[in-house]
Computed example of a mutant assay.
Amino acid sequence: MDAIVKNFPLPGDLSERPTQQEAEEAVRVLLRWAGEDPSREGLTDTPSRVVKSYKELFSGYDQVAEDVLGRTFEEVAGYDDMVVVKDIPFFSHCEHHMVPIIGKAHVAYLPDGRVLGLSKIARVVDIYGRRLQTQESMTAQIAKAIDDTLRPRGVAVMIEAEHMCMSMRGVQKQGSTTLTTTFTGAFKIDAAEQARFMTMVRSR
């Protein structure tokens, strides 16, 4: 499906962010709300651990995909066929419930004289994954970042993921998987290219 790309806030004035102390106090409030005693031995260091883990889990807000994708290579010996990086694992968090989304991304593009380092594609998946997300937005954001920076003949992105907001709460349907796709350029207008991408993703 094609998704609307949200404009996520990029890093700005870090002084606008709450302090570490304020963030830790917020965790203590949540612990009390859940019925716990933040002062008991097992929880005394939990607020600082949670804040530290959040800094890692949401590190995507401090990174810009265009910076990661900025370096490209033109010495490709005339190669102009599809480049596919599949089964890229990622962990994200649902923006509605702040619980994990666990999945893998498959990304392809058709070069137009330039190619990306393969690790850059995986890093872009991580950048958007390490933000509060919907799967639809994340799929479109990855495609748009590659499309805008590399200007290839087309980009294809597929994400398969399990949402803990469906598995752990609500309908509690463990093992259900959500699949989203975004296509640009030749992938969008040529059904044969879409089919070729899907076949390459599904091949083992």
Rank of each mutant, 00 (worst) to 15 (best):
K52G: 08
L150I: 11
R32N: 06
T182C: 10
M82N: 05
E22L: 10
F187I: 07
M200K: 13
E193N: 07
S59F: 02
S137F: 08
D81Y: 04
D148K: 12
E95G: 04
T139H: 00
I4N: 12
V84Y: 10
A192C: 00
R151V: 13
E66W: 06
A34V: 09
L118Y: 08
T177K: 11
V115P: 00
A191G: 03
A192N: 12
L43A: 10
A145T: 09
T184P: 05
S15G: 00
G170K: 11
D112I: 07
L69H: 01
I4D: 09
K6C: 09
H106T: 13
Q174L: 12
T149W: 00
R131P: 04
Q20N: 12
Q63W: 00
I4L: 13
V107W: 12
C94V: 05
S176A: 15
I127L: 01
T184F: 03
R204M: 02
R17S: 09
M98Y: 13
M82E: 07
K52H: 07
M166W: 02
Y109W: 12
T199A: 15
V85T: 10
K6A: 12
S15K: 14
E75L: 06
P152S: 06
T182G: 01
I4F: 11
T178C: 02
K104S: 04
M138Q: 14
V76W: 05
G42C: 06
F8Y: 15
E41W: 07
A108M: 11
P111W: 14
P11G: 02
R130N: 03
K188H: 09
S203R: 14
A23Y: 00
E95A: 06
R28I: 04
D80S: 14
A105R: 09
M198A: 13
E136K: 10
R196E: 12
E95V: 02
T44Q: 15
A156H: 08
R114N: 13
V64R: 14
T134H: 11
E75P: 01
E74D: 15
P152C: 08
C165L: 08
A34L: 15
D13H: 05
A145E: 10
G170C: 08
P89F: 02
P100W: 00
V5R: 11
F8H: 11
T46R: 08
G175S: 09
A23I: 02
S15Y: 00
I146C: 03
A77L: 10
V50K: 14
D67V: 00
D13A: 06
E75N: 14
G103N: 09
H93V: 02
T177C: 05
G117T: 04
P18I: 12
L132A: 14
T199S: 13
F91V: 15
R40Y: 06
G60L: 01
N7D: 12
V201W: 02
F90I: 13
W33P: 01
